[in-house]
Amino acid sequence: MDKRLIAGVLVFGSLWGFSEVIIGTGLQNANLPYGAIMTGCFAISFLVLSRMIFRRPGMQLGMGVVAGGLRIFNPFVGCHLCSAIAIMAEAAIFEVIWYKMSSDFSDLKTITLQSSMGVATAYLVYVGGYVTTQILTPIVGGVGFYLENLIIFMPRILASGLLPAILGAAVLPVILQVRKLDFTLKDRLYYPTALGLTLLCWVGVIGFSVILG
């Protein structure tokens, strides 16, 4: 596997996990809709940016594994494994949605198409992650999963996806403008920068968890 790609997975996955833990916690403490903001803004940004730069399907799934690993240190709803798997599920859903998308994003020429893709991606990623958490948490917590509880709560889950969808509609066109900028790092800078950023994210998350815990 391409070394640059592995470094990219590590960096973007770490940045995603870092933002989920640190920024997500801050938003939660400020009583803001952190789940919607994290998915509609941050998750979509990292997933699409990495797809834009590396143009490699499957990479985002790897990012989900890395981000999930970071999430284990600071889980939401008190379930380590559920948090990690929910993020991986979000990454998997993104891969499915963007599977047929052209690597040069020529399918998304107009703002309408870009916003529409933002709506669809953010909504489905958010709702998919939410449902995954609702299924896994009681199973992993040992209290059993009851399908009727999920079915009755589905309208609430479907409603909660509206805000991430609206955020995604705004964020995706902005992210796609980054295509016009030329970010190129030489190899001798790329790998140290990637390593440094990754380490910073992991140390930050683990340190944050130690301080909290």
Binding site: L113, S115, Y123, L162
Partner: peptide, 18 residues
Amino acid sequence: IPILAMAILLVGIISTLY
């Protein structure tokens, strides 16, 4: 893609009202 987005927004709005 736009049809899917509109359907999703509709589902979200109807669910919110419900």
